[in-house]
Structure formats: C-alpha cells, structure tokens
C-alpha cells in the first residue's frame, strides 16, 4: 500500500504544470524515503529530477510498504489536479501492484471530498546516472529574475551564453537581427535573502544553452522564490528550484557546443 497525504495540492499542481509540456509521460518512483521522478525530454537534451522527501513537513502522512513505480501521463494528471482547490489536501493512493492511482481531494473545512482514479501506464524510460559533482560555479538568484532574463533574451535568439566570473554573471544573446546582454552583479545590500544574487565561484565558466529549454524550466518559477544555477565548463547546467517542506525540482540541460 502506498499513501501520501500532501498538505497543499497547489505544490503538486505547480510541479506538474511545470513538467507537462516537456515531459509527456513519467514514472513516479515511490519508496519509504519519498517520491522521485526522473524523465528526459523526447530529444534527450533536457532532464528533470524531482525529489519529495517523506520525512519533510509537506506530507501529513506518508506510507509506502514496498517500492512501486507509478507510470502517469502528466497531461492527464494536470487535468485531474485542476479539479482540486488550491487549499485542498491531496492524498495519493495506490496498491502494492497498482493499475490505478487514486487522488483524494479534501477541502479545508472537510465539507467536500472528491476522489478520482486514473489508469497507470507502463513507461519504458531510460534512467541516467547523474554523478554528485562539485560545480565550478553556483549562482543563486530570485526565480522571477531568471524567468525574466530567459524571456527577454529569447526574443532575439535561440541560445544564451552564461558567463560566470568573480564580479557576477552575464547572460548574452546574439541573433540575426540583434543582440542583448544582461549583467547581474552580486548583491550585498539587499535586505531579503530571496532577493539576493550570489555567485559561488571556484572557476569561471562560459557556456551556451538553448533558450527554448531554459524558458520551459522557468514554468517552475512559482514553486520557489529562488533558483540555483550550477555550472561547470562542458557539462550540463543544473537549474534547481527548492520546494519548501518537500525537497526540490531540478532540471539538467546539455550545453551547446561549437563544431
């Protein structure tokens, strides 16, 4: 038996909304330690990795008697979650050898309980081993700032060059019709921690990435006030959105290379 009671259905809604356009079907791997999801986009350029820890406060109850994999169409899951109120408590439930995933939405005042079942799918997905590495550069910035940068630069070109150095981080685009550059300096005088830009730099990095994917990742902006970009030369960038009281959602994107 698997049963996970999440205090805020809005968190699950935001997660699925941020994934469903790049990742059509995905396996939720459930174990006693929590729920993980790893999926690659159809072109094998971008990867998402979701971790929701069972011992965090976002789960009111969590039970997973044996490890199970729940293969779900994310478009369908998004439709089901739209049936929940943002303040509803959502319970996910499945048997040990499941064909069906059940969603139960409890309104805050417990006056309305709704239940939906969806059929599970067999999904053959290629799991990748992602080594734990120290990155040359980790940029922490407000998530809405990163969203704005990606949106602004995507008007002029297909790829952004991210240049991390000791003064800050530069985002540059060069298209056929024009070019643009946004410089972010490290902030020290900002009151709120979530408004700060910080750059932890071991080595400078200059790397180009497809804006189409970065813009898609920023659909997760509402999950977190801040976003962390981890970069090392010639390796995929990690775009991480911490999820309060649950864990995190990470996106990996392979760099563009010069031929």
């Amino acid at each position: 038996m698997f049963e996970a009671k999440m205090l805020q259905s809005s968190v699950l809604k935001k997660i699925i909304e941020s994934l469903k356009d790049l990742f059509a079907d995905a396996n939720f791997d459930c174990s006693s330690s929590g729920i993980t999801l790893q999926d690659m986009d159809s072109s094998h350029v971008a990867l998402c990795y979701l971790k929701l820890r069972s011992d965090e406060e976002g789960f009111e109850d969590y039970r997973c008697d044996r490890n199970i994999t729940l293969g779900v169409n994310l478009g369908l899951m998004s439709k089901i979650l739209k049936c929940a109120g943002n303040d509803d408590v959502v319970t996910l439930r499945a048997e040990d050898e499941p064909n069906i995933l059940t969603f139960i939405f409890d309104s805050k005042n417990s006056e309305r309980v709704s239940k939906y079942d969806i059929k599970l799918m067999e999904i053959d997905s290629e799991l990748l081993g992602i080594p734990d590495t120290d990155y040359s550069c980790v940029v922490k910035m407000p998530s809405h700032e990163f969203q704005r940068i990606c949106s602004n630069l995507s008007q002029l070109g297909d790829s952004v060059t991210i240049d991390c150095h000791k003064e800050g981080v530069d985002f540059k685009v060069a298209g056929e019709q024009g070019s643009g550059a946004i410089k972010l300096k490290q902030t020290t005088s900002v009151d709120k921690e979530e408004d700060q830009v910080t750059v932890q730099l071991n080595e400078p990095v200059t790397q180009s990435f497809a804006l189409k994917f970065l813009c898609a990742f920023t659909k997760a902006t509402s999950l977190s006030d801040t976003v962390n970009l981890s970069l090392t030369q010639d390796t995929p960038v990690v775009v991480e959105y911490p999820i309060a009281q649950h864990g995190y959602l990470r996106f990996y994107l392979a760099p563009k290379i010069e031929e």
Binding site: L47, L128, G129, T235, A254, K256
Partner: peptide
C-alpha cells in the same frame, strides 16, 4: 557552428 549535444554524452544509462 553551434551543435546541441545530448545528455548521453555526459551521463551514463543506469
């Protein structure tokens, strides 16, 4: 010319 590498070039299948 800019090319887009795939993730397989960096991570191995498990």
């Amino acid at each position: 010319v800019e090319m887009q590498n795939q993730l397989f070039a960096y991570f191995t299948a498990t």
